[in-house]
């Protein structure tokens, strides 16, 4: 793995990643204080890869995605960082240029598909709108194209469905429509923000399958944001674990599940119920995500960290650890591995 800490500025020339986020900070300036929703996140997505981003809700993973697209609502603001996409820094782009990139080169699908579709517009209208805004002026998209788009995401009876309103669709169907909308302009990157959270379990599998199939067919990269370790294990090639606004561990999926290094990741993995395995109780990480306004000094996880207590580390509460490449291609933000660094 290449250097992911982003310290040397330019991405390596020989293997240009599709997306490289460097030290991204997005803060919300509220009356009660500055909420550091994203606080120094760095991550990379290569062409064709599925990058999993996992963490508890409120850890800033969705906000990272929104920051990449520059869709952060007030009072939030991207404070610093770089977002390199296909060799260009998106944060240097004008609003108009970003509008052209959204939906065409980077597409997003959201958590709640039904509420993510406009209730007063027909499915076809919403599907074709993507084509309308991104294609050459003067060429009106035709209904057949919408039918084709729906067919590709496996919606039965698409000729009828395009005339439906969102409230007439099931959740899974709506998510497929969202995916069709995302795929309409053949983007290089699809950001899937908790695409299955609001869906039934059986539908979840279908939607995930669809995403993987589309990736295999089209060769686009996917940034899969989720809080479910199971989804990540099944889908992702590489995983970033986030905690309280920053990435704490990053590794190829197999490595991560084989040998989770960060105490937080361990906790997360331990909390997955495993079929056939009897446990008295599921493991629970004590405490809660810290208040994003006044972050604890030092490691953000330290107050909840059992390993810290067990190993008697003093440094954790004083200084925040850097990303340490503890194993080849396996980075972790924890003082436990200070000595393992190559």
């Amino acid at each position: 793995m290449a250097d992911r800490t982003g310290d040397n500025g330019k991405p390596p020339a020989e293997e240009l990643p599709l997306l490289q986020v460097k030290d991204l900070k997005t803060y919300f300036f509220t009356r009660r204080g500055i909420v550091k929703a994203v606080d120094g996140v760095s991550l990379t997505v290569r062409r064709g890869e599925i990058r999993g981003v996992v963490g508890e809700s409120g850890c800033g993973k969705s906000m990272t995605a929104m920051s990449i697209l520059q869709l952060v609502d007030k009072p939030g603001r991207i404070v610093s960082g770089e977002v390199w996409f296909k060799g260009e820094n998106l944060l240097a782009r004008s609003r108009r240029e970003m509008t052209a990139i959204r939906g065409k080169q980077i597409a997003v699908i959201f958590q709640e598909p039904k509420s993510s579709l406009n209730p007063v517009l027909k499915v076809s209208t919403q599907l074709l709108e993507v084509l309308k805004v991104h294609q050459d002026v003067g060429r009106l998209p035709r209904t057949e194209e919408a039918v084709k788009m729906l067919k590709e995401v496996g919606i039965p009876d698409p000729e009828r469905r395009i005339h439906n309103y969102p409230h007439e669709l099931s959740g899974g169907m709506a998510q497929r429509v969202m995916i069709a909308m995302g795929m309409a302009c053949a983007p290089d990157l699809l950001i899937a923000d908790e695409p299955t959270t609001a869906l039934d379990v059986t539908i979840q599998a279908q939607v995930l399958d669809l995403i993987r199939t589309l990736r295999n067919e089209r060769g686009m990269a996917v940034m899969l944001i989720t809080h479910a370790m199971g989804v990540v294990a099944e889908m992702a090639d590489v995983v970033t674990v986030m905690y309280a606004g920053t990435a704490v561990e990053e590794a190829p999926t197999l490595n991560l599940f084989d040998e989770p290094l960060h105490p937080y990741t361990r906790g997360l993995i331990a909390s997955i119920p495993v079929m056939g395995q009897r446990k008295e109780r599921l493991e629970v990480i004590p405490g809660r995500v810290p208040n994003l306004i006044d972050m604890p000094p030092g490691c953000r996880f330290a107050p909840r960290c059992r390993a810290r207590v067990e190993h008697g580390l003093e440094k954790c509460t004083v200084e925040e650890p850097p990303m340490i490449e503890a194993r080849p291609g396996h980075l972790v933000r924890c003082w436990l591995y200070e000595g393992d660094q190559r």
């Binding site: 004590p286 405490g287 995500v289 208040n291 306004i293 604890p296 107050p303 207590v309």
Partner: peptide, 20 residues
């Protein structure tokens, strides 16, 4: 936003099971 308190100092993390 979550409004949580910092963990109390007497929280026994060694034996913690569920601590709300």
């Amino acid at each position: 936003m979550h409004s949580t308190e910092p963990a109390p100092s007497d929280l026994d993390l060694r034996a913690a099971d569920v601590v709300a």
